[in-house]
Design a protein around this nucleic acid. Structure first.
Lengths: 348, 348
DNA sequence: TCACGATGTGAAAACGCTTGCACAAGGCCT
DNA sequence: AGGCCTTGTGCAAGCGTTTTCACATCGTGA
């Protein structure tokens, strides 16, 4: 296993420089020489040590992916999308999570990506502007996903529009008491996605001539558990909603379960819509707003890679920053329906 | 950003060797010197370049995680467990997927982990013994997850026992026609998990005095889609099952949806049990066999790291191989119930 | 026939760190 | 007082590549 370029050079009776050139397809190598080197290299099972070559070249061939957490559906999908395109360009992807111990403060304080990555993807980055400044000050090329930042290229779905689409679907069905399960109140990671969706929610309400009732807005922590808790809270109110817009499918699913346990029919007594189109949403019949997460991951990775390749080859001209909206789509399934004639109360 | 160890040495009026020693807490550095070096280093925002240090030390500080795919719930959780413990020991984790283009053949042919990782975690590795031999021949320390291999340490749940537990639950409820939705027939990645679960299924049947009916065993591809298709196939049979054991929760969820769409009550007419205890299973009321995926990831990573650390410090004595079974547990929820008095047929 | 650009090749200097070895300076013992 | 560990420090040789530069060699046009 430990064959080095020198072993190959010796065996092929050439210098290491020639081996390097021959194996990487650089010009100025005689065809016969190249052939011989390649043959020897493959006979010896030689592969270049990336550590050494990265040191020599000065590029780490690593992109960092900063996410609140792995293991959650959205970020897992994202990672796999990013990984897929990074790999074909020879880049590794190194995840950094900001919701663990220490959270984003630790991340910003230690800047653990320094000297380790060539570029950074900030996904739903929970940073305030000071923190962001600290990160950009390192000089590492950055793109964002899920939120737009002035001066930084990125892609995102239009969260406000998506939310508005969702809530519009509900108002279109005649609902007037529409709850929001989001991530606002306790805001574990204070990123902008839930905020934007909240705004879309409000917009849709006023578009339908409805007044905003703060008691119908509860946090859901973007988990099924959180969604369930939120639903409990909503059902305990004097006049429960007839429809719920959950800011993620996982919360929606948690909410639906609680509602059904309470004896409510979904969508007979209560309509529920989510966002994401989680892998299993189709199989629980959840109406939702679909977004292509893997596609977003692939796209943002490509955006960063283009920038990185551009850096080496081209002018260091001011990169024109680029904000790209990704589409979303309403998928109507079986958890939303017309407003019930009389509001049902959960049975005790 | 580009401060090197030499900059620090110059500023602190010591040699680079001393800087290296001081910053890494090695002995034989005068307290006053160390203090000064640390101060200077932090003033200059110095961090060691891992690429250079890895080259010098000869260890890559990377563990490879070989999985069929990322982005699926099980492997995403696994990755996050592995990542969590690897990180605290300073290791990066580099995923390799074997179900993409080229599949495991490509992986075995190119051995893309050479010179890149210090150790390898093979999760549900779809390798035959020749392929496995090719991988081990590289000399890279290996552990397996999800399956036991002679001569290689690993951890796994007892899949046969888990399956037996699941099917035993169904026979205990009086069911006699019990289907299996697994991954056997077309076997996209031919790994052993579905095989073991199939054996557990058979064992549970004979334990209950039931005869095995091959027509009740259909592949499900470990996806909700696959589970749905499988259920369609099962319902089309002359005498459909009254209970289904799905080899993953995702398949179970797909199956349930199809059954309900066909007018069957779950669990009134049809009981369904899965394996995994997926994040959302609790919220769709799915009866299942629970396994702690993140815990498995953490444990297998620790096992590998211990081995790696052992390598450097201690004797190269024959590592005692270590096979560790991880527990599973039956979680009864609301998709399983007693055998219906008369078998229901799907309504057309 | 001679200078001259192409072309192929090798020597050696990076890249930024770690670490073995040599060495100086003190303390401690006898 | 003289030898001897111990402690603190620096020099320099790696680690395995890439890449610059210089140097042959060969053909080619004048």
């Amino acid at each position: 296993m430990g064959t080095t370029i020198e072993d190959v050079a010796r065996a092929a009776q050439v210098s290491v420089a020639t081996v390097s050139r021959a194996l990487r397809g650089l010009p100025n190598v005689a065809p016969s020489t190249r052939e011989r080197v390649v043959a020897v290299a493959s006979r010896l099972d030689y592969v270049a040590d990336p550590t050494a070559s990265r040191l020599a070249v000065g590029r780490r061939m690593v992109v960092g992916l900063v996410v609140p957490m792995l293991g959650q559906w959205y970020y897992a999908k994202l990672f796999s999308g990013v990984e897929a395109v990074a790999t074909v360009s020879g880049y590794d992807v190194l995840p950094f999570t900001t919701s663990g111990p220490g959270g984003s403060e630790r991340f910003v304080r230690t800047l653990p990506f320094r000297k380790r990555v060539d570029g950074l993807i900030l996904a739903d980055a929970p940073f305030d502007s000071d923190q962001l400044a600290a990160v950009t000050a390192t000089g590492v090329p950055i793109v964002t996903l899920g939120t737009f930042t002035a001066g930084i290229s990125g892609i995102a779905v239009d969260n406000a529009a998506a939310a508005q689409l969702a809530v519009g679907h509900l108002t279109g069905l005649g609902h007037t008491r529409i709850a929001l399960i989001g991530g606002i109140a306790d805001d574990p990671f204070h990123f902008s996605v839930p905020v934007d969706r909240f705004h879309g929610y409000q917009r849709a309400l006023s578009a339908a001539g409805l007044t905003y009732d703060p008691s119908l807005v509860v946090p859901g922590n973007f988990s099924p558990e959180g969604g369930a808790e939120a639903m409990h809270q909503l059902l305990a109110a004097p006049t429960p909603p007839t429809a719920v817009f959950a800011c993620s499918d996982e919360m929606a699913i948690g909410a639906i379960q609680v509602a059904r346990d309470a004896g409510l029919g979904v969508p007979r007594d209560l309509s529920v819509i989510g966002i994401d189109d989680h892998d299993i949403s189709a199989y629980v019949g959840l109406t939702t707003i679909r977004q292509d997460v893997i596609g977003q991951g692939e796209r943002i990775a490509q955006l960063l890679l283009d920038r990185l390749e551009g850096f080496e080859g081209g002018s260091h001209a001011q990169e024109d920053i680029h904000h790209e909206a990704h589409p979303t789509r309403l998928v109507v399934r079986r958890t939303t329906g017309p407003k019930p004639p009389v509001a049902a109360h959960p049975r005790e």
